[in-house]
Nucleic acid binder design. Structure first.
Lengths: 149, 149
DNA sequence: TGCAAATAATTAGTATAACAATTACTTTTG
DNA sequence: CAAAAGTAATTGTTATACTAATTATTTGCA
């Protein structure tokens, strides 16, 4: 059976294209990590990378920085701690909080995974010039701002 | 505490921007459906909309058309059938398949939800001209093609 | 100061998504 | 034609996401 794909019938809206591209990108990075036996997911990587930029953030700060919500960050940190890549250090100044810190193993994991991620990026941005990437960012950020709640 | 956002430290890569924009867009459409008490999720809507374009598709055809995988489509169809928006009709030509068909209620749901989705789209594409949207699609499709497995 | 409101983290429930494996059926091919 | 390969749908497991509710703690204000 033929699946209709003509412009008359296919859901050819930019939102659909945006959704499917983001999905495939995530999947591609996920598979790159899996086939290198990195032992972490791409979302766990995003948290590790943020801690690499600024170690000791609270879970809520991590949530804001990565645009994930609090319960999701709780569970990702649970997994990262179980793998001994991070530790929850009680914040003496505010006993509701933890400072999430990279362990030595976490730092080593970042060094291990970074080349994999960088290689996947070169595949993703292949055939795109700088101007195109800049324009993409501008347009995506406009959409992002349009949808501020 | 300050969350670092300068270009030196923030994960300012196009992939991150793509991911967060797609996530916010999905969230925005999801909330639009929820606050209108549509009773379906955005992913269920995507399947309904595809059936509106071409009714009676098999689950695998739906999966290909919407870029979802087969187990996900199975579960979405389970939910849509439970809500009496679709029915699984055995395919007499191939007894492994079902034809997924919209019920009258499903067709009514599409008419009910379409204005909500259209309104959300106008918000999302606000401040973007046609040329920008066209360029966005071109660039996203290039990335999509780059990541073909 | 004391109490209400806000905040940080967690837990529970539902939905989506990827992957692997299984079952049932169909097609290919030796 | 029968066995092997392929296909359609399902099931199970793990992970992410959103909502809502809960607990513990801190802040704000009367």
């Amino acid at each position: 059976m033929k699946i209709e794909t003509s412009s008359k019938t296919k859901i050819e809206v930019p939102g659909f294209i945006l959704e499917r591209t983001a999905k495939r990108m995530k999947q591609y990075f996920q598979r790159a990590l899996a086939s290198a036996d990195a032992g972490i997911t791409i979302d766990q990587w995003v948290i590790l990378q943020q801690l690499h930029i600024q170690d000791g953030l609270s879970q809520l700060h991590l949530a804001k920085a990565t645009y994930k919500d609090a319960p999701t960050v709780t569970r990702i940190i649970d997994l990262l701690c179980k793998k001994d890549l991070t530790v929850r250090v009680p914040d003496e100044a505010d006993r509701r909080r933890f400072k999430i810190q990279l362990t030595e193993g976490g730092k080593a994991k970042i060094e291990e995974v970074l080349p994999i991620v960088k290689k996947a990026r070169t595949v993703a941005w292949n055939n795109l010039d700088d101007e195109q990437i800049t324009q993409l960012e501008v347009t995506l950020n406009q959409i992002f701002d349009n949808l501020e709640f």
